[in-house]
């Protein structure tokens, strides 16, 4: 487990997750996350060198759909639930610093 998690680390993570935290919140979160990671360090005692990661609780493979069109959702019902819609499309503020 990485040593300590600082408010700077938390700020970087928050940015990745598109969360906006005040300096006070960053401090608080850093403290709590640091406490957790300290607890999680218990697993560093384990020798996991030849252990395969487990990603599937119930191993299945090759699950497919047939390539057949099924009637989708009603556009008006969906757009009615959108924060902002215009001209049958979803409207968002200018996309900058993203692309």
């Amino acid at each position: 487990m990485p040593e300590r998690i600082t408010p700077t680390d938390v700020a970087k993570v928050a940015r990745l997750a598109r969360l906006e935290l005040t300096p006070a919140q960053l401090e608080r979160a850093a403290g709590q996350l640091d406490g957790m990671l300290a607890h999680f360090a218990d697993m560093d005692a384990l020798d996991l060198s030849d252990v395969q990661p487990m990603t599937q609780p119930y191993p299945l493979q090759n699950v497919f759909r047939d390539d057949v069109v099924v009637e989708g959702l009603d556009r008006d019902e969906v757009l009615a639930a959108a924060p902002v819609a215009e001209d049958h499309r979803f409207r968002v503020p200018p996309i900058v610093g993203l692309d």
Binding site: R89, F90, R91, P94, D99
Partner: peptide, 11 residues
């Protein structure tokens, strides 16, 4: 994209 007022999205 730059200087646009807003964007519309079609999925």
């Amino acid at each position: 994209i730059h200087g646009s007022d807003y964007s519309l999205i079609d999925f």
